[in-house]
């Protein structure tokens, strides 16, 4: 474990070094992600020019949900972005074999292979949104609340990554499962808004089937005036852990299939 952490640091440092050399790309990537996300936030702002509350949620509460989603997503994007490319850049090209002739866990190698700088745009935007909205929530922020929020954001990032990992594993059988991943990922769009606006079947899906509800909405309820979801909110880290375990188990099965059938 310590060895892997040290190794990750070396991978990370090497890539950051490259980024600083190509800083123009970094700025453009950062700005573009920031800007496209900002568009969606401004959209909410325009809507709230015409209404006071949305299904019992204030503007800042919605921003807060959005902020958790953005920061959580940024963890997924910065550190786990290479998952998207397993099919296209690794399995299809045969580069996956490169990972298998190294004395490392191939999943670790895969993830460490790429630090996605564009995710910083989401991180900054998410942090700004959290900063602004936290000040407007009727909530007394203590030290441990901040710690709890950070735990929730990390859990959110892990849920995004776990679901992604689960669907990328299909690439071992179908070469490139990108469309499948894309479809699953798009479900996360639902979780930008309070789940209470949706009908019951959709809420159940977002909670128990593709649990994107835990990436933003449930954790957010801990800090807003909506107290009906405390239990669900508090199990968020557990949900993250379970998803990662399931996804990793599935990945192992996929890997075994890959090494027995080849490509």
């Amino acid at each position: 474990m310590v060895r892997y952490m040290k190794l990750y640091w070396h991978f990370f440092a090497a890539q950051v070094k490259v980024m600083t050399e190509y800083w123009v790309d970094f700025i453009i990537g950062f700005m573009s992600v920031f800007f496209i996300q900002f568009t969606s936030v401004y959209f909410i702002k325009v809507v709230f020019d015409h209404i006071d509350v949305l299904n019992g949620w204030t503007f800042y509460e919605i921003l807060f949900i959005y902020g958790i989603a953005s920061t959580g997503r940024s963890i997924h994007q910065i550190f786990f972005d290479n998952l998207w490319l397993v099919g296209r850049d690794y399995i299809r090209t045969g580069n996956f074999d490169r990972l298998l002739i190294r004395p490392l866990n191939p999943l670790f190698h895969l993830i460490a292979d790429k630090v996605q700088q564009d995710g910083v745009g989401n991180l900054v935007l998410g942090t700004i949104l959290l900063g602004i909205s936290m000040n407007h929530l009727a909530f007394d922020w203590g030290f441990w609340d901040i710690v709890l929020l950070i735990v929730m954001v990390i859990s959110s990032g892990l849920i995004y990554s776990g679901i992604n990992l689960f669907f990328v594993t299909f690439s071992f059988w179908m070469v490139d499962s990108f469309p499948l991943m894309q479809t699953a990922f798009n479900v996360s769009q639902f979780a930008r808004y309070p789940l209470t606006i949706y009908s019951k079947p959709i809420r159940i899906i977002l909670t128990w089937v593709v649990p994107y509800g835990f990436t933003s909405f449930y954790p957010a309820t801990l800090f807003t005036g909506h107290k009906n979801y405390t239990t669900l909110a508090l199990i968020t880290p557990a949900v993250a852990a379970i998803i990662c375990v399931i996804a990793y188990g599935f990945w192992i099965i996929g890997l075994r299939a890959y090494t027995s059938t080849g490509n």
């Binding site: 070396h10 991978f11 090497a14 890539q15 070094k17 490259v18 090209t93 045969g94 580069n95 074999d97 490169r98 002739i101 292979d113």
Partner: peptide, 17 residues
């Protein structure tokens, strides 16, 4: 034809990794 080095980073850093 496939590379086992790291595509975007200088060769020296690849060896270091």
């Amino acid at each position: 034809q496939r590379t086992q080095l790291f595509w975007d980073i200088p060769v020296r850093e690849s060896y270091e990794l």
